[in-house]
Design a binder for these strands. Sequence first.
DNA 1: CTAATCTTGTGAAATGATTCACAAGCCCCG
DNA 2: CGGGGCTTGTGAATCATTTCACAAGATTAG
Lengths: 207, 207
Amino acid sequence: MKHIAESTVRRLSRYLRFLEGEEELGAETISSDDLATLGGTTSAQVRKDLSFFGSFGTRGRGYSVPALARRIREILGLEREWRVVIVGAGRVGAALAQYRGFRERRFNVVAAYDADPARIGTSLNGIVVRDQRTLDADLQALNPGIVLIAVPPEAAQPIVDRVARAGVRGILNFAPTALRVPDGVVVRSVDMALELEILAYALTAAK
Amino acid sequence: MKHIAESTVRRLSRYLRFLEGEEELGAETISSDDLATLGGTTSAQVRKDLSFFGSFGTRGRGYSVPALARRIREILGLEREWRVVIVGAGRVGAALAQYRGFRERRFNVVAAYDADPARIGTSLNGIVVRDQRTLDADLQALNPGIVLIAVPPEAAQPIVDRVARAGVRGILNFAPTALRVPDGVVVRSVDMALELEILAYALTAAK
DNA sequence: CTAATCTTGTGAAATGATTCACAAGCCCCG
DNA sequence: CGGGGCTTGTGAATCATTTCACAAGATTAG
Ligand SMILES: NC(=O)c1ccc[n+]([C@@H]2O[C@H](COP(=O)([O-])OP(=O)(O)OC[C@H]3O[C@@H](n4cnc5c(N)ncnc54)[C@H](O)[C@@H]3O)[C@@H](O)[C@H]2O)c1
Ligand SMILES: NC(=O)c1ccc[n+]([C@@H]2O[C@H](COP(=O)([O-])OP(=O)(O)OC[C@H]3O[C@@H](n4cnc5c(N)ncnc54)[C@H](O)[C@@H]3O)[C@@H](O)[C@H]2O)c1
C-alpha cells in the first residue's frame, strides 16, 4: 500500500466519529459535503481521503453511513481488540486507566504499572497497579499491542527500551521528551505543554 | 508577519526544550546539526525554521544557546506569564491543575471550575474548585489568556461559547469533539483517543 | 423515457513544505 | 595574515498535500 499521509489518517478518524454520531441518529447515507461540513474541511478533501483506499460511495447518493463507518474502522485497524498496558499510574496514567472512551473503542487496558510502593496494589477501576519490576517478565503473557507511557520524562526512555525489547510495536508517550526506538516500533507522543506553547504562539502572532 | 506553518512552530518549541537542556549543561553554542540530531530532523530544516524569524547564528560557530533560547521564547510568546483557567475538574482537569510543568513555563492556573457539587470546594494543589455557574461573572476579573476545557464532550461547546463571549481568545480542548468558535478565537484540541487510533492505523498498515 | 439534479471519483493544477546545494562569513592555526 | 575547515542563511529544486474542475454514474420528477 502506498504511504498515506498522517493528516489523512487523522481526518479518517474524525470522519468515523461523525459517522458513528449519524448512525445513532439513524442516518442512512451521507454526502462528502456533509462530512466536510462536520469536520471543517472540504468535500474534495473527503473524497480524496477515501479514494486512497477504494471507492465506497454511490454517485448521486453519497455514502452508506454504516458501510462507510465499518470500512473506516477496518482501514484504521479498529475492528479488532487492542490490548493496552499503562506504565506510570500517576495522575495522567490513572486518568487514562479509568477513561471509558478507550474501552468503547475496544482499547482494553489490561494492566498498569508503577514504581511507587504507595501506588502499587491500589486499584484503578478494577485494574490493580503492579510493580514495574515485574513488567518485563509480565509482558510475554500480557502481549499488549500498545503501551501507554505516563512516567516522568527521565524515566520514559528506559521504559521504551524495555517494552521494545519485549516485542511491543506501538507506544503512545505522554512524557515531554524525545524518544528513540528501534526500527519497526512506532512511537507517538501527546505533549500537552507543547500544544499550549503552539496556542501561545498563535495568540501572540495573531496581533 | 508571513504565515508560519504549524509544523515549524511545533519544531521551534522542541528546539527550545533541547536548548534549555543544553543551557543547564553549560553549553555556550550549538550548531543546527546538533539541534537536528536532538530533534530528529535535519540541519537544513532547523536553519529554515529559524530563518523565518531572522538570522541568529554565526557562520562557523553556530548559535549562542542562551540567546537562541531567549529568542525562541520571545517568538513563541513565552516571555510573558499566561493566566490559565481550567473548566472541568475531573480526572483530566485535576491532572492539568496539578501539573508542575505548566507553572515552570509560566502558564499559571488561576482557577478551576466544575459542575459537580461533590467537587466544588475541594482543593487541587491550592486551587479551590469553583462552581461553574460563577464562571461567566468571574472571567472579567480572572482575565485568562487561555482556557483549558476538560469536561465531557457534550458540555464542551457551551463552555466554548461562554468563555468566547467573555473575551477569551485561546482555548485548549481535551474533549473528543469538534468545536465552533467565533473569528479571532483560537482553539486547539488534544485528542488522546484520536492519537491511539492513528497509532492503531500505523501498526495495522505496517504489515 | 427524458431531462434535470445530485454526487462521486480522479486526473491536473496550484499551493505548501522539505531538502539540496552552495556562496559567504567566521574562527583558528600556523 | 593567509588558508583550511566549519557552519550559517537562502534561493532553487524536489517532494507532498490540497484544491480545482469535470466526466460519468445514479436518482428523481414528470
Ligand atoms: N499532569 C499533567 O497534566 C501532565 C501534563 C503534561 C505532561 N505530563 C507528563 O505526563 C507524565 C506523567 O505525569 P503525571 O502528572 O501523571 O505525573 P505523576 O508524578 O503523577 O505520575 C508519574 C508516575 O510514574 C511513576 N513512575 C516513575 N518512574 C517509574 C518507572 N520507572 N516505572 C513505572 N512508574 C514509574 C511514579 O511513581 C508516578 O506515580 C510526565 O512525564 C509529565 O511530564 C503531565
Ligand atoms: N480520562 C482520560 O484519560 C481521557 C482521555 C481522552 C479524553 N478524555 C476527555 O477529557 C474530558 C474529561 O475527561 P475526564 O476523564 O476528566 O472526565 P471526568 O468525568 O473525570 O471529568 C469531567 C468533569 O467535568 C465536570 N463537568 C461536567 N459538565 C460541566 C460543566 N458544564 N461545567 C463545568 N464542569 C463540568 C464533571 O463534573 C466532571 O468533574 C472528556 O471529554 C473526556 O472524553 C479523557
